[in-house]
């Protein structure tokens, strides 16, 4: 016992004395920037274990992460595996919601070649540009980000020189100089929408962070790497007029018996959407939410066909059967 007690005492003394010699000077020399650089290096190292946007993989691959975890989660993963065809992970760098949305949306346009939707979203983007100008943003601070998004949007439409394939879309979304610019575009759009409708968003923001709308946008929306919450998703979905489904993989169990997985549909308010009718808009963007992170989900093709034109209740009963 005595040996054991002695050892740490000696050790501490040594640390203290050596600390006196070097640490004090070193601490003086360590600048905030060094600390920030070290921090971002650690984050980067962690983040680089996964691409900005990963490869498609079976939903069941999620189970590996929860083998020793809650049985509810494993049950839910089974259910998800039946309902969804595939999963595509995104990097957990605080931008995962925007990154997932970017890829999912552009891939949807690439697959559907929906020119009507492209024109519609371009009109929404134009409105967002005007919103930012009205709010007093300097145009040159955001125009590059807007430009790059429009460029990606046009290049997923086939039939022109700049058209790109699915592989190239994946590559672009993994290229920081494009991917981060598009993420930043969404951040500008989100911030503009929140500020434009600050009265609507204020109570939600107060509940989240006890900050004013202005402070919230400055500290939690516009800076890269700040995580997204309901407020961000609602604002982005409304601003661009794109419905988003978020499927929740958490430990909440259901009272009805049997395992079902909750989801929430963010359906844009009438302003931006064509037709304005709110019945049965089926979001084509589906994201998987696990506390703190968003990934992309792919619907089963069969599942889509089954539900085409079906009402919401049918859809719900299907997913819990």
């Amino acid at each position: 016992m005595q040996n054991k007690e002695e050892l740490p005492v000696n050790a501490t003394v040594e640390v203290v004395t050596s600390g006196k010699a070097s640490d004090v000077d070193d601490w003086e020399a360590i600048k905030d920037n060094d600390i920030m650089q070290q921090q971002s290096a650690i984050l980067a190292e962690e983040a680089e274990k996964i691409q900005y946007v990963g490869d498609k993989e079976p939903v069941s691959s999620l189970a590996a992460e929860y083998q020793s975890g809650s049985a509810i989660l494993l049950e839910k993963i089974k259910v998800l595996n039946e309902q969804y065809a595939a999963l595509r992970r995104t990097r957990g760098d605080g931008n995962c919601f925007f990154r997932s949305f970017m890829f999912s949306y552009l891939e949807h346009i690439l697959e559907t070649q929906d020119k009507v939707e492209v024109d519609r979203v371009k009109a929404s983007v134009e409105k967002c540009r005007k919103t930012l100008l009205d709010l007093g943003y300097t145009e040159f601070t955001f125009e590059d980000f807007f430009g790059l998004f429009i460029e990606q949007l046009e290049s997923v439409l086939q039939g022109n020189e700049a058209s790109i394939s699915q592989e190239e879309l994946v590559e672009r979304c993994r290229d920081q100089s494009i991917s981060d610019y598009v993420v930043m575009f969404f951040r500008f759009v989100t911030s503009g929408e929140i500020k434009r409708r600050s009265e609507f968003f204020e109570p939600f923001i107060m509940g989240l962070s006890n900050a004013t709308v202005e402070q919230f946008c400055k500290s939690s929306v516009e800076p890269m790497g700040e995580e997204s919450d309901h407020v961000h998703i609602t604002a982005l979905s409304d601003a661009l007029g794109v419905p988003i489904r978020v499927v929740y993989l958490d430990r909440s169990s259901c009272d009805t018996g049997g395992t079902s997985v909750n989801h929430h549909d963010f359906v844009p308010t009438s302003e931006g959407t064509a037709g304005g009718a709110s019945e049965a808009i089926k979001p084509y963007i589906t994201l998987l939410y696990r506390p703190g992170h968003y990934d992309i989900l792919y619907c089963n093709n069969v599942f889509i066909v089954q539900n085409k034109g079906a009402s919401f209740t049918v859809l719900n009963s299907l997913s819990s059967s």
């Binding site: 600048k31 955001f142 980000f145 500008f188 890269m224």
Partner: peptide, 22 residues
């Protein structure tokens, strides 16, 4: 402001930076 180096402690120069600043 660091007295020796002139370094500035300001949120927008650290984690609250966004391209909206010039």
């Amino acid at each position: 402001v660091h007295f020796k180096t002139g370094e500035i402690c300001l949120d927008i120069l650290k984690n609250a930076w966004s391209p909206a600043w010039t």
